[in-house]
Nucleic acid binder design. Structure first.
Length: 818
DNA sequence: ATCTCCCGCCATATG
DNA sequence: CATATGGCGGGAGAT
């Protein structure tokens, strides 16, 4: 009944018959032999394949970027040709390839338009499909399940599905990305990689890996199927529960791509994460194998959708299969207010009333095993965290700012936010340049409001140099970055010289959150249960002030913090608390600097602006503050921004301790980093601001992604102290840089860092193509003990500063196309 | 040998 | 109860 719409001018239309009745277009060569020859004779197949591939081929002309799928198709085509040529006599068995899920999926997809018109929905009848495509039903389920996970289809009833095409795709991806971030997949990935090379042969080694647990619930592997609000949900009955593993697995798999920076995920890592559940390290061999099998199934379908393509990652261990995301970039959802595309994780509403554990449990662990949830520790954690949050919220009603007694904690994890840099649109930038200062203020303050619009529009051309900002100031140019999650943006000052280099950011690193469990960021968003976790980046990093703790905070009463991300909260309720706090007056003058808290957890000083007025602005800025329960804990992150202008000052964040880092920085590097000299914000803690440059650098590195994956700064030695030798080589060794290369073409995934590095490293080659080398050198550089720095934000004093190590787990890997 | 992953048994869910 | 779904893992083709 559905007629192909003209819209997708692509091959689809051309391909094969959509109409059930349609005869095979091509002449059915008598092929029909002994075996149950399928209607899809080689000829017809060939035809289809060719037509399917042709567009690709065409486009591929100049582009080396041939998609895997096209390659796949071509390959298949060749096979078929051979067969044909080779002859008719026996098309030997279809040869496995012809039966591949990927091919089957192509056929399947060919039947439906990418973007079916709303008016006419396409229905899918499994019986028809299986018959037409000539495959066992079982296979169709594999395809459909994956498509369901992307909301490209949804089940209506037995044997009946609706085809949505790619209409929901972007929304789905957005939702998945969000959930993925909430899940801290980035960290999980890091963790896995780290432990992997850390000591694989180390017998007992894994003990510490419990960090996962320390993280909170890093293994919330149990997440229900992510639903899309808008998407037809009908047939409530039909939708039944059943947590469909393939579906969920597929979503998780996709999430991994969306959150990781080089958007490349190796099967191995994916499998481990997906297995996740009880982090029983028993890498159950068989379980692992099974997982891998499933992943291949999923990957085949995703490949057919052209969302990913197969590549190989080469590490010291050899090359491992991996996949690279080739789908659309997913922007942070800006208008989340409306859509609650989110996981159904916890019962949807969970109004403020009691989020009973049971309730959650059910949702989290759908019908599956009855006893299932009993055994999942994650569940318990989750519940606890929820309660905790709730408690916090209630207890700390309106005054996040307990100045005198609170401690700020930084949110350790840096979201993949910066990744969004590319999202900056020209308009934005331009706007910036005009009234740089004003803009800053606005951004800082109202953040969300001011900026978001622009990026809402589709992705700007990524090609454009992201961070470029017209240097309006001689000294520094502010760039406003949208905050991914909340839509809040923050500003970063870039040195003019560097501005042009900013491009990409790699979120890979992770910071070790504080051990203390109680720290909770007040989540504006109650509904999101998952990321309750302490350090999160989630969308908003709001820190709550803890009443009990006396902290450095008092020093600067003027800084009131407001939570930033409110806007994104679905639940407004959380809001009030933040909003309430108005910051009184600030006497920036006294300090000479106004501070701004950024959602990311970093403190960025907005200067009183030389030119602008901004004075009052400072007050309003959104602030994210966290409270620490225990003074002892230090927060892992440091947030300092490099600034050049003399007028700018660097600020130190109270409560942040930067423990000695082992990263070796060359003197040059440091020198190169434009940093303001110490900020004397906090008179009290003299020590805290000791090494501004270091902190600044640290900040930069982190944001930039130089310190990619896995930077951890264990706050609590006890919990997990990652021993890192101070020797440069260690680091360099472990931190091999990522070497990406696709086929011959090296993907320049993170151009920015490279440039950045090179700027620091005089000797380093400027060519973008040798990023790793550069990086490596960078880290290698003898820094001497001095390079390590520590910064303690805590009210200076007696508080003990915990020490941590900056750990850079990166490995060398090479990605190549098959 | 390793990578892929097809095939289809069979437990469950659905109606 | 008959089917529709879909978890799962053996084992074979592809490399």
């Amino acid at each position: 009944l559905k007629t192909p719409l003209k819209q997708a001018a692509t091959s689809q239309l051309v391909l094969t018959e959509r109409q059930p009745d349609c005869q095979p277009l091509s002449t059915p060569p008598k092929a029909q032999d002994t075996p149950p020859a399928d209607p899809w004779t080689p000829t017809s197949n060939l035809k289809m394949l060719i037509s399917a591939a042709s567009p690709e081929i065409r486009s591929r002309e100049q582009r080396k970027q041939l998609s895997d799928s096209s390659a796949e198709v071509l390959q298949a085509k060749h096979c078929l040709q051979e067969h044909l040529l080779g002859d008719d006599y026996e098309k030997s068995q279809p040869s496995r390839k012809e039966k591949s899920l990927g091919l089957l999926c192509h056929k399947f997809l060919a039947r439906y338009p990418d973007y079916p018109s709303a008016a006419q929905k396409s229905y899918i009848c499994l019986d028809e499909v299986t018959e037409e495509l000539h495959v066992e039903r079982r296979r169709i389920y594999d395809i459909v399940n994956v498509l369901e996970s992307l909301h490209m289809v949804s089940r209506l009833a037995r044997n009946r599905y609706i085809w949505h095409g790619r209409h929901n795709l972007s929304q789905t991806l957005q939702a998945l990305k969000k959930v993925g971030e909430e899940n801290k997949y980035i960290q999980q990935i890091q963790m896995i990689k780290q432990r992997e090379y850390e000591h694989e042969f180390d017998p007992d080694g894994e003990k510490k890996e419990e960090m996962a647990s320390s993280l909170g619930s890093s293994e919330q592997s149990e997440m229900p199927f992510v639903e899309l609000p808008g998407v037809e949900f009908r047939a409530a009955p039909v939708n039944g529960r059943k947590y469909k593993s393939l579906r969920v697995m597929s979503q998780k798999f996709v999430m991994l791509f969306l959150v990781s920076t080089p958007q490349i995920v190796s099967l191995e890592v994916a499998a481990k994460i997906l297995i996740g559940e009880d982090q029983l390290e028993d890498l159950d061999k068989s379980k692992f194998k099974t997982k891998i099998r499933r992943l291949y199934d999923i990957a085949n379908v995703l490949s057919s959708l052209k969302l990913i393509k197969k590549v190989h990652v080469t590490e010291e261990r050899g090359r491992k299969p991996a996949f690279k995301w080739t789908g659309p970039e997913v922007l942070p959802n800006i208008q989340d207010t409306k859509l609650e595309a989110t996981s159904t994780t916890c019962s949807p509403p969970i109004p403020e009333s009691i989020p009973s554990k049971e309730h959650c449990s059910k949702n989290l662990f759908p019908s599956k095993g009855k006893q299932n949830f009993t055994r999942h520790s994650s569940l318990i954690k989750l519940v606890k965290s929820i309660e905790n949050d709730r408690r916090k919220i209630q207890s700390a009603p309106t005054s996040p700012v307990k100045t005198s007694t609170s401690t700020y904690q930084s949110l350790a994890v840096f979201p993949s936010t910066i990744a969004q840099l590319p999202a900056l649109t020209k308009p934005q930038l331009e706007g910036q340049s005009k009234t740089a200062e004003e803009m800053q203020m606005k951004c800082a303050l109202s953040s969300a409001e001011a900026v978001p619009k622009a990026e809402a529009s589709e992705q700007p051309a990524p090609s454009q140099p992201l961070g470029v900002c017209p240097a309006s100031h001689s000294s520094a140019s502010p760039v406003i970055l949208p905050h991914p999650h909340s839509g809040v943006s923050y500003a970063i000052y870039l040195h003019p010289s560097q501005a042009h280099t900013v491009t990409t950011y790699s979120p890979g690193f992770m910071l070790q959150p504080l051990p203390c469990a109680n720290v909770t960021g007040i989540k504006s968003n109650n509904s999101k249960v998952l990321h309750k976790i302490t350090t999160e980046e989630g969308d908003n990093q709001i820190a709550t002030a803890e009443p009990t703790k006396p902290l450095a905070a008092e020093e600067r009463p003027e800084m009131k913090s407001e939570t930033s991300s409110q806007r994104c909260l679905k639940r407004s309720q959380a809001l009030q608390e933040n909003k309430l706090i108005k910051r009184p007056r600030s006497d920036e003058e006294s300090l000479g600097t106004s501070l701004t808290f950024f959602p990311s957890g970093y403190l960025i000083p907005l200067t009183p602006c030389t030119h602008g007025n901004k004075g009052d602005c400072s007050n309003k800025e959104k602030a994210g503050m966290c409270s620490l329960q225990h003074p002892t804990y230090s927060s892992p992150v440091t947030g300092v921004i490099p600034m050049t202008g003399s007028e700018l000052k660097t600020v130190n964040i109270p409560a942040f301790h930067i423990t000695p880092l082992n990263i070796m920085l060359s003197p040059n590097s440091i020198a190169a980093a434009p940093v303001l000299s110490n900020s004397s914000l906090n008179p009290n803690n003299t020590s805290s601001a000791q090494n501004p440059s270091s902190s600044a650098l640290n900040f930069m590195l982190q944001h930039i992604g130089l310190i990619p994956a896995g930077v951890q700064v264990p706050a609590n030695p006890v919990l997990q102290h990652v021993p890192v030798s101070s020797q440069p080589e260690n680091i360099s060794h472990s931190s091999g840089n990522t070497h990406l290369q696709e086929g011959k073409v090296r993907t320049n995934t993170a151009p920015w860092p490279c440039h950045f590095l090179s700027s620091f490293q005089p000797s380093a080659p400027k060519e973008p193509q040798e990023p790793q080398a550069v990086t490596e050198n960078f880290f290698r550089t003898p820094g001497g003990p001095n390079s390590g720095f520590s910064l303690s934000a805590n009210s200076g004093g007696p508080e003990r500063t915990s020490q941590g190590t900056l750990y850079i787990p990166q490995r060398k890997l090479e990605v190549s196309e098959d």
